[in-house]
Simulated scan of single mutants.
Amino acid sequence: MNKDQYLPFFIFTGQPDYISNEMFMQSFGKFYTKGEDNQKLLDDIIAACGDQPEIQARKSFPEVFKAFDKNILSTTSKKLLVDIIQNIENKNFAKKNLTTQRDLLEAIFKSLNNPIPCIPSSLFTPAMNNKPNLEWCTMFLEDRERRDGNGQSFKLNKNISRSIKSAIRKVKESTNEFSHLQEEDIVKYPFLSNSFLLFEILIWLPEFVQEHYENYI
């Protein structure tokens, strides 16, 4: 079953001492001792059931979660990523799922404003829950000079590869382009393309932060 879907397993034993506990753990992984860890086992089973969608997603695409593990991106936006991965695996390519991709791109822009002080706050709209102006933020990360609503000029002046700039631009344009479609219309290839471009961006993000904003992680 584990070939196709994640199936958590637990070792519950009353006789781990025939080898040292350390050797037992190295051979078989974490274990629970009868009479000592009963409640811990039950708690961990319940937690594993609740976390199964994320664990399955991590099993399929482990590298893309690094930005969340480093607290660059929030737990709320992690749910967006898990949803995208589930839609890939379930072959759910409805147009409505492009909205999730746009929301994740917005979350990445927000993370580069807070907690990472990269994108200026004036490129966001406080009256709309600090919603990023997607075009302005995209231009800023493309290292193109950008003026906010007050005419103030900003430029990133940091090295971002052309492929990442292009990935950000493509996701931004693609998630806007199909707004005229019905929610259930199928957009298989734009959805798949955007998904993997977002994965590239998520893998790049902690590397960028580590290089330029190390004190913030």
Rank of each mutant, 00 (worst) to 15 (best):
I108C: 04
Y18W: 13
S111Q: 08
P53L: 04
S77A: 12
N71M: 07
M25N: 02
F61D: 01
G50P: 01
K30T: 05
Y32F: 14
A57P: 05
A67F: 14
K96P: 01
I88D: 01
L81V: 05
F28K: 00
T99Y: 08
P16R: 04
K59F: 07
N87R: 14
D83L: 06
V64D: 06
T33R: 14
Q56P: 02
E89P: 02
K79I: 07
K110P: 04
K78R: 15
K96N: 07
S74H: 10
D51R: 15
Y18R: 09
F31E: 00
D44P: 10
L104W: 11
K40A: 11
N38V: 06
K66R: 14
M25C: 03
S111E: 13
S111H: 11
M23P: 00
F12A: 00
D44S: 09
G50K: 15
D37Y: 10
A47H: 08
F61I: 04
L105F: 08
A47K: 15
K66C: 02
M25W: 02
L105Q: 05
T99E: 04
Q52M: 10
F93H: 07
Y18I: 09
N38F: 12
R102N: 03
I45P: 08
G35D: 10
G50C: 06
Y32I: 00
F93G: 00
Y18T: 08
A67I: 10
D43H: 12
M25P: 00
F65G: 01
L73M: 15
D17N: 09
D83V: 01
T100G: 06
K96E: 11
N87D: 13
S60K: 14
V64Q: 04
Y18M: 02
D51H: 12
I46S: 13
V64T: 14
F12W: 14
N113V: 02
M25F: 02
S111I: 08
L42M: 11
K34N: 05
K34F: 07
P16A: 06
L105A: 04
S20K: 10
K66V: 09
K110S: 12
F68Y: 15
L105H: 11
V82D: 04
K59A: 12
L73I: 13
P16H: 11
I108P: 08
S60A: 13
K96D: 07
A48R: 12
R102F: 03
S111G: 15
N90K: 15
F31I: 00
Q26N: 11
F24C: 00
N38I: 05
N92R: 10
R58L: 04
Q26S: 03
I84F: 11
I108F: 11
R102H: 08
A107T: 07
K66F: 05
G50S: 12
K40V: 10
